[in-house]
Computed example of a mutant assay.
Amino acid sequence: MSLDDLTDDVTDSYAGIGDELTVSLDRETRNELALLETALEPEATDELVRRAIHMLFQSTVDTGKLDFQLRSDYDVTYDEYLSGMTFEEMTGADQYPTMDDERRYQF
């Protein structure tokens, strides 16, 4: 897969999520959410879910798990996704022809 494939998959996923998301909660998650809502007193429970997604995303980026998954599935990193270019494209390494070792030193 490639950077273009990743971009297409993110776009498709974004379109599929929509503005509202219905999530079923197990007992443990419901208890944890109730405790957080009581302690943090957000205006709405939705705010806690948004914060949780941001925290999960940030920790996944910080620990390198996101880069690992992206490199495994799409052969790109998060930085390459953000820039819209692979490292090879950024450095120009993909612009040079491959070296032919048999003819390298021939004039």
Rank of each mutant, 00 (worst) to 15 (best):
L48W: 10
D79A: 14
M85L: 14
E88A: 10
E89R: 01
R27L: 01
L40M: 11
Q58L: 14
V61T: 15
E41N: 13
M90C: 04
M90E: 13
D94H: 02
Y96L: 11
Q95L: 11
G16W: 03
S24M: 12
I53N: 06
T63Q: 05
G92H: 05
F57G: 06
T77Q: 05
T38V: 10
S2W: 01
H54M: 13
T29R: 02
D79V: 09
G64L: 03
I17D: 04
D46A: 06
Y105Q: 04
D26P: 00
D46P: 00
L36K: 09
E32G: 06
V10S: 00
Y78K: 01
F87R: 10
T91P: 02
Q69T: 13
A15G: 07
R50T: 15
I17H: 07
I17V: 15
Y105M: 07
M55H: 15
Q69R: 14
A34S: 15
T86S: 03
L25F: 15
E47K: 08
Y74V: 01
M55N: 13
G64F: 05
Y96P: 01
R71E: 15
E102Y: 11
E102N: 12
A52P: 07
E37H: 12
H54V: 14
V10L: 08
T7W: 01
L25R: 05
T60L: 12
Y78R: 01
I53D: 05
A93N: 12
F87A: 13
T38C: 07
E80Q: 07
D8V: 00
D79W: 07
L35W: 09
R50C: 12
E88Y: 06
T7D: 03
T38A: 11
D67F: 08
S72D: 15
D8Q: 06
T60R: 11
E89H: 04
D73I: 07
T77N: 03
R27P: 02
M55P: 00
T60D: 14
D12Q: 04
H54P: 01
L33E: 10
M55A: 15
L3I: 02
L25K: 08
R71L: 14
D75A: 08
A39H: 13
F68G: 07
G64Q: 02
V76I: 10
D26S: 09
S59Y: 14
A15Y: 09
L21Q: 08
F57L: 09
G84I: 01
E80P: 05
A93F: 13
M99G: 12
D94R: 00
L6A: 05
V76M: 01
V61H: 10
Y81I: 02
S83P: 00
P97E: 14
S72W: 08
Y96W: 13
M1K: 08
Y74Q: 03
R104W: 13
V49C: 06
E43T: 11
V76D: 03
L56W: 15
D9I: 06
T22H: 15
L33R: 04
F68C: 06
M1V: 12
T91M: 04
A34V: 11
